[in-house]
Computed example of a mutant assay.
Amino acid sequence: MVDTEQPGQPGQLTVRTDVVDGIVVVALAGEIDHQTAGSLREALDLPDGVAPHVVLDLREVTFMDSSGINSLLAVHQTLAQADGWLRLAGTAPAVRRVIQLVGIDGVIDCYPTVQQALAH
Rank of each mutant, 00 (worst) to 15 (best):
L72W: 03
G22S: 04
R41S: 11
R87W: 04
D109R: 14
L40W: 02
G103Q: 11
G8Q: 13
A27P: 00
Y111F: 15
V55F: 02
L58Q: 01
L72T: 05
V107Y: 07
A80G: 06
D109Y: 02
R41G: 00
V75I: 14
Q35M: 10
D3N: 13
Q115P: 01
W85G: 05
Q12D: 12
G84H: 08
H120T: 14
L73H: 03
P47A: 05
W85I: 04
T62K: 10
H53P: 01
Q100N: 15
A37Q: 12
D83N: 15
D33I: 03
D3Q: 10
Q100K: 15
M64N: 06
S67Y: 11
S39R: 13
I99F: 10
A92I: 02
V15G: 01
T14V: 13
F63D: 10
V107M: 12
A29D: 12
E5A: 12
G68V: 07
T4D: 13
R97K: 15
G103R: 09
L46K: 01
V98G: 07
A117Q: 07
D83A: 13
L88Y: 04
I69V: 15
A74P: 04
D18F: 00
L88I: 11
L40D: 02
Q9C: 02
Q100T: 14
H120K: 11
R41A: 12
S71T: 12
A94L: 15
P93L: 10
G38I: 01
T17F: 00
P93I: 08
D18W: 00
Q12I: 00
A94H: 13
A94V: 15
L28W: 03
V15I: 08
I104T: 11
H120F: 05
P52S: 10
M64V: 14
I32V: 14
C110R: 10
G90Y: 02
L88F: 03
A82L: 13
V75R: 15
G11T: 04
G90C: 10
V19L: 10
G90K: 03
V24T: 15
D3T: 10
L58W: 01
I104S: 03
G49R: 05
